[in-house]
Simulated scan of single mutants.
Amino acid sequence: MNALEDIFHSFELGIRSSKAVKPKAYLNSLGLDYNELRIGFNSGQFHHNKEQEFKDQCEALGLLVKSDAGVNKEGLTAYTVFGRYGVVFPLLNQSNEIVNLFAIRFELSTPVEEYLNEQGIYPSYPHPLTKKLFLVPTALDAASLMQSKALENRESVLALHDGKLLPQHLEAIKALTELEEIIILKN
């Protein structure tokens, strides 16, 4: 298992916490069910009480960025946390490993959507026998389409990165040997 898999698993546990009232209410307002989709919650504290080696690894992944903010204990480093207090969706590579995260920081005056990097696909690489492919602007749009149960047999959805078609999307589309139709949904 890779580091992003482990961290995302902690986010999946986080959304199931009894303290995660606001993220559950936010998902409910969108019609999304974390029991049916892989969705997590990042409270921004996954690095607390962890060894420096873990924090260094998270910093290398882009999950933590050192900050000049004050800390209440001598010798501690302050960090800005990716997707802090946000719902988080995993993006996968062809081997179904988590290689990226999409977060929505919903508690801000204007919600902020952010990707950790430009790797991976949400929700996953489509089955090679897909006949109809829906391309949607973001992971949130893809999750909504999947949750709606509107997709039929041999239909798949791919979320673009902020509306951008990246090389991994083209690679995934080219691998669809029975593709008959691509439907592009825009906001």
Rank of each mutant, 00 (worst) to 15 (best):
L32H: 07
L135C: 03
G86S: 15
S67V: 09
F82I: 00
G163K: 09
D141Y: 07
Q119H: 14
V136E: 04
V65K: 15
Q147N: 13
E155N: 00
F11V: 05
P128K: 10
L92N: 08
G120A: 05
P167I: 12
G70M: 12
L30N: 01
Q94G: 07
K24H: 03
K131D: 10
E181T: 15
G40S: 05
G31Q: 09
G31W: 03
N93D: 15
K50P: 02
T130D: 05
V136W: 01
E171N: 13
A20Y: 07
F54C: 06
E181G: 09
N42L: 04
Q119K: 14
D56H: 12
E36K: 15
E12F: 01
V99F: 04
L145S: 04
L101F: 08
S29Q: 13
T80P: 05
L129V: 11
L140G: 11
L179V: 13
L61V: 10
K66A: 14
H9L: 14
E152F: 08
N93F: 02
F106T: 05
K55D: 01
L135S: 01
V88E: 04
A159R: 03
E152R: 14
G31C: 11
T138Y: 05
H47N: 13
T130P: 00
E118P: 01
L151C: 12
L140W: 08
A143K: 00
K164P: 00
Y34V: 01
D68V: 15
G120D: 04
L4V: 06
S144F: 00
E180L: 10
L27F: 02
V112C: 05
P123S: 06
E51G: 06
L179Q: 12
H169E: 04
C58I: 06
Q52H: 11
P128F: 08
I173R: 05
H127M: 11
F82E: 04
N96V: 06
E5D: 15
P123E: 00
A142R: 00
V21L: 08
I173F: 10
H127A: 15
H161Y: 09
S29E: 15
Y34Q: 09
L160D: 02
G83T: 06
L64K: 06
A103T: 07
P123Y: 03
F89N: 02
I121F: 00
A175H: 06
E51P: 00
S17L: 09
V21K: 13
N93E: 11
K22Q: 15
E114T: 10
A159P: 02
T110D: 10
N2M: 07
R84W: 03
Q45W: 09
H48V: 12
H127K: 14
Y34A: 15
I39C: 07
